[in-house]
Design a protein around this nucleic acid. Structure first.
Lengths: 126, 126
DNA sequence: CTCAAAATCAGTAATCATTCCTAATTACTA
DNA sequence: TAGTAATTAGGAATGATTACTGATTTTGAG
């Protein structure tokens, strides 16, 4: 594992995951000033392929990368953009049942309003 | 509704859905030879916004458009690329529960092996 | 009808995320 | 240490999508 690849992995593990390639690139430049975006993409791709990290596609078609390689759903808050994991195992159980055990990968991205924003909205109303 | 927009909608309704903008553009050119790709994109965007059709993002970041605007999951066969709807309501029920009723939209794309390809593979083994 | 305002169009340029390419650098191996 | 393989930085190329522009079509009030 090269210095660049190691840094990319470290940045992702140091965050709560859910970073775009551009965000990781920005962070990485603080430590390796001339690291290239292409390298970040290549390393992210290899880390995905080798099962170190995960990746999922937002509804605008761009990708974000995840600390954990295990398939799980994501909640995107439509107010603040915050991304959380879906811990509930029901969804994957359902998908395994529906695909008769042939499930290879799953992308679940649900847009909702996160608890914090729900509170704000309720306060604003009151 | 313009002639172009109407044609776009008709093409989508005439298919089983799940067409890319480029595919719709190709079909449309058979009837309006000089229709432009930009028009197809604009009309698809408006049809989505106005609730006539749906749209979802594949794992490569590109979009396909769907006859039905109601949120539902999709199964993509990793062997043949075929896309089917998930009829099972459990997934949406789960998501509604998980988001405490604040679910706005959901993208579910599961990669699996479709029944046809499962059969082929089993035949090949035998 | 008639004509002007509004909507829509075709065509093309621009954008954005991502991938590809290449020559140079670095790391491994014997 | 010399040779080879892997990896890099930087930039060019790609592909999907969006934005722009001037021309054309539609619409609706008089």
């Amino acid at each position: 594992m090269s210095r660049q690849k190691d840094l990319v992995l470290e940045i992702l593990n140091g965050s709560r995951g859910h970073l775009s390639a551009a965000q990781i690139y920005e962070s990485a430049r603080e430590r390796i000033h001339n690291i290239s975006l292409g390298t970040v993409y290549r390393d992210l791709g290899e880390l995905c392929r080798d099962g170190y990290i995960g990746r999922f596609v937002l509804s605008d078609g761009s990708s974000v990368y995840d600390r954990t390689p295990f398939p799980h759903g994501h909640l995107v808050c439509s107010e603040c953009g915050r991304i959380d994991d879906i811990e509930d195992p029901c969804l994957m159980d359902d998908l395994n049942r529906i695909t008769a055990g042939t499930l290879i990968s799953a992308e679940i991205v649900a847009e909702h309003i996160c608890p914090d924003c729900r509170s704000s909205i309720n306060r604003a109303k009151a």
